[in-house]
Computed example of a mutant assay.
Amino acid sequence: MSIKKINYKGILAGLVLLAIWQGVSLVTPSYLFPPLQEIGVDLFYIISNGETLQHALTTMARILVGLVISFLIGTLLGLIMGMEDSINDIVRPVLSFIQGVPALSWVVIAVIWFQQVELRIFFIILITALPNFSFQAFDSYKAISKDLREMMLVFRPRSNQMFRMLIFPSIIPDLFTAWKVNLGNSTRVAIVAELVGATVGVGYQLSSAQSLFDLPMALAWTLVLVIFVIVMQIVLGRFENSLLSWRPKAER
């Protein structure tokens, strides 16, 4: 990363927030605003201890597996909806209904339907992320220029060439947007799902910290999730820049 791309304003805003938190912690009880050093000690313990790190990695793996499967199924479904209006007329209302159900309701339904914790968490991530991937793929496919499509057909491309040279470049920007949105949403619903019945994962650890009224540990586990999301956003950004390097850069 070049020096020019460093967000100094963002770093400054973060430092100001940390300074405010530390200042407030000096004049309030530690169970309300624990000092930063206590949170830092717990965070270091989490990432340096094999047992606690396993909880964090388990949650991350659950989220990524659920998102990858949702992405594959949702993108394929969205493209099929875009190609076949009859399928779109049938599937779109179902996806809209699924998307309209609150995530907490899906957690309750999954707890009743599935006894196996891993299957329960996977189902919740899948059912909440899939509609967004499908709608993004559908909308971006439908937005492909008719003139560009007809120009491609003049050269009589094979199906794989049509997908590689026209469809894929057209839908990939919106799919990255869907990934970024679903990453945050899936992280939240995965934690809620882990609060119910799971014995491994960040959600379970947050529940344990809550039962002990250990706010520094709860905040440390929360920071683990924040770091995970930020790192994944950076990785997605790198992939996006690499795949979309052909796009002209906007002048600033």
Rank of each mutant, 00 (worst) to 15 (best):
Phe213Thr: 13
Phe213Lys: 10
Phe213Glu: 08
Phe213Asn: 12
Asp214Val: 05
Asp214Ser: 07
Asp214His: 13
Leu215His: 09
Leu215Trp: 12
Leu215Phe: 15
Leu215Ser: 05
Leu215Cys: 06
Pro216Ile: 03
Pro216Ser: 02
Met217Leu: 14
Met217Ile: 07
Met217His: 14
Met217Lys: 15
Met217Phe: 09
Met217Tyr: 09
Met217Ala: 13
Ala218Tyr: 00
Ala218Lys: 04
Ala218Phe: 01
Ala218Val: 05
Leu219Thr: 05
Leu219Gly: 03
Leu219Ile: 07
Ala220Arg: 08
Ala220Gln: 04
Ala220Asn: 07
Trp221Cys: 09
Trp221Ala: 09
Trp221Ile: 11
Trp221Phe: 07
Trp221Glu: 08
Trp221Thr: 06
Thr222Phe: 01
Thr222Gly: 04
Thr222Trp: 01
Leu223Asn: 03
Leu223Ser: 06
Leu223Tyr: 02
Val224Gly: 01
Val224Asp: 01
Val224Gln: 02
Val224His: 00
Val224Phe: 02
Leu225Pro: 03
Leu225Lys: 05
Leu225His: 00
Leu225Trp: 03
Val226Ala: 03
Val226Phe: 00
Val226Tyr: 00
Val226Glu: 00
Val226Asn: 01
Val226Pro: 01
Ile227Thr: 08
Ile227Tyr: 00
Phe228His: 02
Phe228Met: 07
Phe228Tyr: 04
Val229Ser: 03
Val229Tyr: 00
Val229Cys: 02
Val229Ile: 14
Val229Arg: 03
Val229Pro: 05
Val229Glu: 05
Val229Asp: 06
Val229Gly: 04
Ile230Thr: 09
Ile230Asp: 10
Ile230Phe: 12
Ile230Ser: 10
Val231Tyr: 06
Val231Gln: 04
Met232Ala: 09
Gln233Arg: 13
Gln233Tyr: 14
Gln233Val: 14
Ile234Trp: 14
Ile234Lys: 14
Ile234Ala: 13
Val235Met: 11
Val235Glu: 07
Val235Gly: 08
Val235Trp: 05
Val235Ser: 10
Val235Lys: 09
Leu236Cys: 10
Leu236Glu: 12
Leu236His: 08
Leu236Val: 12
Gly237Glu: 09
Gly237Asn: 11
Gly237Tyr: 10
Arg238Ser: 14
Arg238Met: 13
Arg238Phe: 11
Arg238Cys: 11
Arg238Ile: 14
Phe239His: 06
Phe239Pro: 02
Glu240Asp: 02
Glu240Cys: 01
Glu240Gly: 05
Glu240Trp: 03
Glu240Pro: 00
Asn241Pro: 07
Asn241Ala: 15
Ser242Gln: 15
Ser242Ile: 13
Ser242Pro: 07
Ser242Arg: 15
Leu243Ala: 10
Leu243Gln: 11
Leu243Tyr: 09
Leu243Trp: 14
Leu244Phe: 04
Leu244Thr: 04
Leu244Met: 07
Leu244Lys: 05
Ser245Pro: 15
Ser245Trp: 09
Trp246Tyr: 15
Trp246Cys: 03
Trp246Met: 07
Trp246Val: 05
Arg247Tyr: 08
Arg247Ser: 13
Arg247Asn: 13
